[in-house]
């Protein structure tokens, strides 16, 4: 304070000015470095959080109408339309079903593969690389390959190719199934989808679980072996508890990813979200959001995304609560 009142009286030398400017710069330079990141985060991350809430509660909101100066009343109309839309129950059911099946299946399978990889020496690196390959692929591209593998080709109503999967099934004496075509059942579609999602989910889970396994102290296993514990017992009493934090991690991220399932379905079945002649049969929550967005019903899309967020939030909380009870240390 004292200094401040003194300042105007004594004229500053050039050197002093420079030092002062430098001090000011030093005080603010951190913000300068952060400026680009904060500006972009502000516009594309923070603003969306506020604005999505605002437009979700603006009845009948449409971005184009707002640009033209229209105003909207506050209310929950968007949530009502989002839920009452004909496909909502189907989309929610599909999303839940896919998540509830694929997360446990892929986690168990990944755990078995990780444990197996951890107990071999030769070829381990090669196999590890192979199991990671699905991760570095494009979800749409490999979805198209799964479509090709399961697809039957009929030209002009006349059956041509059965597809390789049906080829294998018939080679073992089974009868071919329409997996993804116009005459397919929803169960068959779901089976293909589940296989694809599990195939896609394995690499990340194996990577995390294997990393965890390599961190487990070998002495626990030695001690258990000296005590004559069986492999099965060692697996359940040592491996699983020691890995429980990683298992919890892959399950939680698996649930979050599962509720956002969308591109895997587009990869196999296309934007119609279902086989030919059965559009929207395999719709999911995220699919609904993009449908509303494509129709320029942003209010409805915002409401649907908030509903999805709340579901994911609730499921994550339940997961955390359960894992707190089950995860050791």
């Amino acid at each position: 304070m004292m200094e401040k009142t003194k300042q105007p009286k004594v004229p500053l030398t050039k050197a002093e000015k420079k030092i002062r400017a430098k001090a000011i710069f030093n005080r603010w330079k951190a913000w300068l470095y952060l400026l680009p990141a904060l500006a972009i985060l502000g516009l594309f991350t923070v603003w969306p959080i506020i604005n999505t809430l605002r437009i979700a509660f603006s009845n009948g909101y449409q971005g184009m109408l707002e640009v033209n100066g229209e105003t909207f009343t506050f209310g929950i109309e968007n949530f009502k339309t989002a839920i009452e839309v004909s496909g909502f129950g189907n989309a929610l059911g599909n999303t839940m079903l896919l998540t509830v099946i694929t997360v446990p299946v892929s986690t168990m399978l990944a755990l078995l593969i990780a444990v197996a990889l951890n107990s071999i020496k030769p070829l381990r690196r090669l196999l590890q690389t192979i199991f990671f390959l699905p991760y570095v692929t494009n979800g749409i591209a490999i979805g198209m390959v799964f479509m090709a593998m399961f697809n039957m080709i009929a030209i002009g109503g006349k059956a041509q190719s059965l597809g390789i999967i049906n080829g294998i099934i018939t080679a073992f004496g089974g009868s071919p199934i329409d997996w993804v075509g116009p005459n397919s059942s929803k169960v068959a579609n779901m089976a293909v989808l589940i296989l694809y999602i599990v195939w896609n989910a394995l690499p990340f889970k194996i990577l995390v679980l294997l990393g965890g396994l390599q961190g487990v102290n070998k002495q626990y296993y030695d001690a258990a072996r000296v005590d004559g514990a069986s492999r099965w017992r060692i697996f359940w009493r040592i491996t699983v508890p020691m890995l429980s934090p990683m298992i919890a991690y892959v399950v939680i991220t698996g649930f979050i990813g599962g509720f956002k399932e969308y591109t895997s379905i587009v990869g196999i079945f296309g934007e119609e979200m279902g086989p030919y002649m059965h559009a929207h049969r395999l719709d999911t929550m995220v699919g609904l959001i993009y449908d509303s967005l494509n129709g320029n019903f942003e209010g409805e899309a915002a409401a649907a995304s908030l509903i999805l967020f709340l579901i994911i939030f609730a499921v994550t909380m339940i997961n955390l609560y359960v894992s707190k009870k089950k995860v050791h240390y």
């Binding site: 999505t52 971005g63 995220v286 995304s305 999805l308």
Partner: peptide
């Protein structure tokens, strides 16, 4: 900044679409 990591991307997409296309 870390807190924003917990929010699913779909929530941003709706507003970002309006921001980018309309504004």
């Amino acid at each position: 900044m870390l807190a924003t990591m917990m929010i699913p991307g779909e929530l941003f997409t709706v507003t970002n679409y309006i921001t980018v296309v309309n504004w």
